[in-house]
Write a protein that binds this DNA or RNA. Sequence first.
DNA 1: TTGTAGGCGTTATCAT
DNA 2: ATGATAACGCCTACAA
Lengths: 357, 357
Amino acid sequence: MKYSAPTIKDIARALNLSTSTVSRALRDSYEINPATKKLVLEYAARLNYQPNPIALSLRERRSLSLGVIVCEVANSFFSQVINGIESIAYEKGYQVIISQSRESSEKEWRALQYLASRSVDGLLISLSTETTDLSMIRQLHAQGLPIVFFDRVAEDIPTHKVTVDGFQASHKAVMHLITNGFRRIAILANAAFLSITKERLAGYEKALLDHGLPMRREWIRYCDHGGMYYDEVETAIRSLLQLRPRPDAIFAASDKLTTNALRVLRLLQIRIPQQMGLAGFSNSELTELLDPPLTVIKQPAFEMGRIATELLLQLIESKRPIKEFETRKLQAEVLVRASTSLLKKKEHPRGLPTTSQ
Amino acid sequence: MKYSAPTIKDIARALNLSTSTVSRALRDSYEINPATKKLVLEYAARLNYQPNPIALSLRERRSLSLGVIVCEVANSFFSQVINGIESIAYEKGYQVIISQSRESSEKEWRALQYLASRSVDGLLISLSTETTDLSMIRQLHAQGLPIVFFDRVAEDIPTHKVTVDGFQASHKAVMHLITNGFRRIAILANAAFLSITKERLAGYEKALLDHGLPMRREWIRYCDHGGMYYDEVETAIRSLLQLRPRPDAIFAASDKLTTNALRVLRLLQIRIPQQMGLAGFSNSELTELLDPPLTVIKQPAFEMGRIATELLLQLIESKRPIKEFETRKLQAEVLVRASTSLLKKKEHPRGLPTTSQ
DNA sequence: TTGTAGGCGTTATCAT
DNA sequence: ATGATAACGCCTACAA
């Protein structure tokens, strides 16, 4: 059955006024008779009248809402970014509309389709791993829809971008692995063409190079869904375990890869870190409570959301077209824990493991 | 700067046609000359014309979108529910708009405000712990906005509800604790007035009763934010530890309470399960990888999302007002792991712990 | 086969 | 101080 909220027209009819008078009264216009105003306001309150945001959007050509597209909200990194986004949006009176692509370019496409055409005033997006065809985004951007990329950016679309310095972060983490005695370090990477994959891979390679360690092609495994499916991680790790010499550590280059790598290693009863060191990107709150506590790269996700949103609002609210775009690179931190500590201890202590850095 | 998508008017002007002809051509009406139709379609394609969903909504008085309000997306239970919701919505061509209340009735209110007034066709909501004033929801419901409650329901609003049988689940979990040798079982509960809190508490009490165990008021601790803030959990647990006799197990009655309880116990260096057993609700994928692996009640979250959405669409698409409402109660499963096993073992095995039922 | 007009809810502009 | 009208983008009943 149809739901129908009260409108200005209803009020006007009931009070025997014109819609314009009602409208002005509701907006507290100075040119309305105080008595009329009072009448209207009271009646509106009784009806719990709310202006219809759809009609407003149609008229004002804006919706005071921002679209966000991420692959999954069930991912600590993204949910923290979203909290950052909402914190700014909330301050500025914008509603945030979240859509998931679930790493499918088809779903991403549908979400874009829906959010575009002015149903949102701007867009924050981290690309799905599957996305190779940027034509739709490119077109929306060309039509003037303000877009800010974060995390997984489209390098050649000229707009603001917010990323984490994946090169530095990976470099630091892999250096840590090496100085802790690991020598044959494999990397589990996201889809190959993603900007973040390239960066993180480069940081990994640089660290090996810095220490004069060999770099082997077969130590690099790509997971095209970024570890969203357990199976792709298991396959990758099983194949790494076949290698001779066998890698002695795994560096996982994104959130789900890291936790799923732990799951696989536990399932295969591989002792961490004795038989295999493990470190990787993760923003999960639980990594220090895992067995073993995981050495992770933690990205400033909340901050990233805030900055991206500030840049987006700047784009939206600017009077003139903006031609100069920034690419902000944030620094991640490495939290060192037991999963990369080769010191011989039968058991890691039962209390909360110290996290350095 | 302003973004402006092409409209029917643009096409009409360019092709020297009326807007109605263009409109009909686009909708492939039989009464349009094939030649004209072709012309219009081609031009529209070139412009990447998309009908303005706002204008459509205004006209059709529906938006093909569903609103979802949860306290937090960064909560495995809710993110799984959302995936269930989206799976159905996607099939039926509805967009899902997610908003977070972050356990604040003020934010919940704003989200409701925004989503209502016909910007969504229906609403799926799990109440924030803070919400005591239901007047706004009640009014929207009275005005005819289709609403389905899930998880945290408003008992006295007559509409469909989907919940988990918290009584059974708690009862089963606490029975498990008792048969495993725990005797002084404390409970960490969500805000006291929530329906789910009452149910879960009742299941806990029944289990104690069944075994003739004492039930003590001081073994019940409420956390008004459902464990969203670490501090409230720490305070609660510290106070439990003061008690004499001290509880020998903690049963945590919701997601964040469970993982934060683990965090607190680890910080305080309390050995689990030797010094304190721990079990609780959690839908996190990581609980079996924690140290120790956690005994949890896992709710059928995805299923819950699917069912709630089916019921909502039924409400939305029904021609006549619906007077009969269902309350679906789903069963949760208990996954038994090391955190409640008092068998003396120096160390739980390093492989993946077996999980039964 | 195509065009005109009216309406969805709102507000700005121009009367009165 | 209040009202009539037009416009935002779309669709459709009715007219031509």
